[in-house]
Nucleic acid binder design. Structure first.
Lengths: 198, 198
DNA sequence: GTCAAAGGAAACAGATCGGTTTACTTAGAT
DNA sequence: ATCTAAGTAAACCGATCTGTTTCCTTTGAC
């Protein structure tokens, strides 16, 4: 296996374990055992467990972003339909066998220090999601895309956590219903300027 | 100090540490040190760390429930105002120096086993919140209190997580705006029967 | 074929983990 | 005053934690 492929494999295994068991509960020994890699190799690729966590978060950001956007765009072709398709993509995500909530929410629960690099990655991930939703709102012709994106992002977040705790994907449908109401309300509304929440 | 008071004091310290640093990251040594209690005493009150975690969750459930409901009821006197006051109480909560997100969301991120007692406590906490919101909706004369409660609970959850990640309380205001729209829409709607999401 | 870089297995280090035990002290009810 | 229940401090247990080191094998470029 190539050197980069090995590194990616370690990260992939780490992501799975971090999502399932959390960050402090997942030891380096377990990651190397399940990745079938020696400890020396792991520490040759990552200077510390914290750096591996950061690399895992960044990789997950990239992978999730691509898969999620692809799903949304495949689920609907109309601009307004895509705004709502966010919640269909969410439902698919929640239904996955390996859904354990949002990795970026989970990491923030274990690292409360505001200056922690993990929190920085989480914030930027959520901002990326918000920008994506906003772009969908703009494409849909929203009068207040920023405000609408704030609202939809909140629904999205709530649906994730609710699905995680209750172990069902139905929250995605609830969120989608609200999203549809908010979208039609916005399209009928006068164009006042909204602001971002972050 | 009374025997019950000592037990409560340990739990209180444990809650603070679990919220701030997470569950796996908080060792019993640190809890006993900060509670100024010997290890023998701690294990005299709790058979294991897991039992202490459970006791902390249950205690937090009770304390939070009472404080939150009191806040909501103090923030508004009208039935419809109280539905929205949920988000004013949330804003107050998010603004607290010691706000580190929802303890019940955080614990689920560290214990993914569906049969874990921690997850059971989390589910029942969220169900309690949902029932409270529903009762407020009923009092407000909602046509579809169950559906409306599903929607408002989702917004509530989203506001919590967003406040936790971004470190600001503005998400409460966003959620409140949406809640107001949903409430007026419900009051103007025909009475179809909704269902719970859990 | 040779040589260097990388990997594997395992021992090792020092700290911390959850949890038990020992020996001694305190406080309260009788 | 006495006796018991509960407390403390600290040693101790085996396991696990992150991270390093040693020694030996593999592999790929030249």
């Amino acid at each position: 296996m190539s050197i980069q492929g090995r590194r990616d494999h370690i990260i992939e295994v780490a992501i799975k374990l971090f999502c399932k068991h959390g960050f402090h509960a997942t030891g380096v020994d377990r990651i190397m055992r399940e990745a079938k890699v020696s400890k020396k190799t792991l520490y040759n690729h990552f200077r510390s467990k914290d750096e591996l966590i950061l690399a895992a978060l960044q990789q997950h950001d990239s992978v999730f972003r691509n898969e999620f956007m692809r799903d949304v765009e495949q689920l609907s072709n109309s601009p307004q339909g895509r705004v709502l398709a966010v919640f269909d993509a969410a439902e698919k995500w929640f239904s996955d066998q390996n859904f354990f909530g949002c990795m970026f929410v989970n990491v923030v629960g274990e690292y409360s220090d505001t200056n922690s690099p993990m929190r920085g990655v989480s914030k930027s991930f959520k901002k990326m999601i918000w920008r994506y939703i906003r772009s969908l709102c703009v494409d849909a012709g929203a009068n207040n895309p920023e405000t609408l994106a704030n609202q939809l992002a909140l629904l999205f977040e709530g649906a994730i956590v609710t699905a995680q705790i209750n172990g069902t994907a139905v929250s995605a449908g609830v969120a989608k219903d609200v999203a549809a109401q908010l979208l039609v309300a916005d399209l009928a509304a006068p164009g006042t300027t909204g602001t971002a929440t972050d």
